[in-house]
Design a protein around this nucleic acid. Structure first.
Lengths: 255, 255
DNA sequence: CGGCAAGTTGAGCCAGGTCAACTCCGGTGG
DNA sequence: CCACCGGAGTTGACCTGGCTCAACTTGCCG
């Protein structure tokens, strides 16, 4: 494969096109080697990456879409333990202990399965690439820890508020636009936050009624009262309190 | 500082003494450089690592004890998002977004604050060390994801069962000994699992009554029915079901 | 031995899970 | 183009696991 062809293969991919992502850190030789030994893959909602496929291709980089790590309990309860998006690199080499979940697409996902050998070579000698991957993994780790903190003690409304901020943090900022993309369905959101779809629905409704946000579509919200949403996310009980009147609006201490 | 002195400083430390941990991968020069630019620290329960201290020393390696990452909500609710133990390396360089928690010792903790500069140098040129750190961070990430999965949808008893297995996985195996060390207090355990200390207590009691384990001390358990505990941890509802009789034991389908 | 935090036990209650019915919406085929 | 279908989302009513509060016991440290 010559370089022109490689460029064709990679130039459409955000992992190469976005200057701060992994493949953008590589020089021509490295990109060439990696591209030559890697395979792209397109998945649709429900497709999973498991077993044998991961044996030979344990490292995947997300170009587009949302991939979830799901844990399934014996009786059918399901949870989404993590969400992977554009730029995330998932290294599943030698996964062993515990019930590591399956990787399941929550919509159309484009990803690239990287050759472990070439990946490791690049890790060993390209400090810029190394730094990008290291920070990505660190983000994944801290994000998972934040998420644990969120779902451990927070109430439903608080979890949802936190999730909306998580979405805001992760999406590329479009200045002068407060519309936040919710890249997953209600049902997935419920599984990610450890609640029921019914509860998610009720919480969105409450936030709308209290005029904290508007949800024009299922996959987007616009926050109209950021400080209040922040207070809810941070676990300020006063901000969560329900209405004190019959059909008036909620009474909120602004303290 | 000469090499003999460095050896004195590091030879007691498990990060150097355990062949599979970070410092054991370094050659004499590297160890020398790292040791020379690092500072050990001993903490006692409740001590926290925050702010300025982390500004100049954002990388810490745990030698002994349990360090927790805690998130505090506005109204005082607290959660432990992650537990760090021997060999874990925590890299907090450029932490910024979200409410990253404080690092708080849950007992006597010995750790070593590593020079970011030397650490980065070593990362760049020692593949063995790089591999060890990479795998440690990956473990942290996946552990946090597993933990999210555990606390999202599991019931109290299931969470506790999972936690006991997590302890078992993390502690160095002593063959022919089923006694598992519980390295944290009940109160911390409750915060880690997102439940109340009262509930933790009740769950331990139930597991003892059902003769699934015995807890000779507060900080240790011995599992007497591993398969049952496993089933509970895996979310088998039948295994969680309470008793069907008045004062008999629980009726359990072994299916 | 006193003092305090940690842990346990009991009683009551509520946030959110569960179940059921319904609406909405995108896709498919006649 | 419309009728049909199935999964996603919503709404309401009910119920329960575990949170809360309070009282008590235990264990640790000076």
């Amino acid at each position: 494969m010559n370089r022109a062809e490689i460029k064709d293969k990679c130039k459409q991919c955000s992992i190469y096109a976005n200057g701060y992502l992994f493949c953008a850190q590589l020089d021509a030789d490295e990109l060439c080697a990696l591209s030559d030994h890697s395979r792209t893959l397109t998945m649709k909602r429900g497709d999973s990456l498991e077993g044998e496929a991961l044996g030979t291709w344990p490292i995947v980089a997300i170009d587009m879409g949302v991939l979830s790590m799901q844990h399934l309990l014996q009786d059918g309860r399901k949870t989404i333990a993590a969400l992977f998006m554009r730029g995330d690199i998932i290294d599943l080499r030698n996964i062993s202990n515990r019930n590591r979940g399956a990787l399941i697409a929550l919509g159309k996902v484009k990803l690239c399965r990287l050759s472990p050998r070439v990946f490791e070579q690049i890790m060993g000698k390209n400090p810029k690439a190394q730094k990008v991957i290291w920070e990505n993994l660190r983000d994944q780790a801290f994000r998972a820890m934040d998420h644990s903190g969120d779902i451990a003690k927070k109430q439903a409304l608080e979890k949802l508020a936190s999730f909306i901020f998580e979405c805001r943090n992760r999406q590329e900022k479009i200045p002068e636009c407060d519309t936040i993309d919710i890249p997953v369905r209600r049902i997935d959101l419920a599984e990610y936050l450890g609640m029921q779809p019914e509860t998610v629905s009720r919480c969105f409704k409450e936030l709308e009624q209290r005029e904290i946000l508007v949800a024009p579509r299922l996959n987007a919200v616009r926050i109209t009262n950021i400080p209040m949403l922040r207070r809810i996310a941070n676990g300020d009980r006063d901000a969560v309190i329900k209405d004190a009147g019959k059909h008036g609006f909620k009474v909120l201490k602004i303290a």
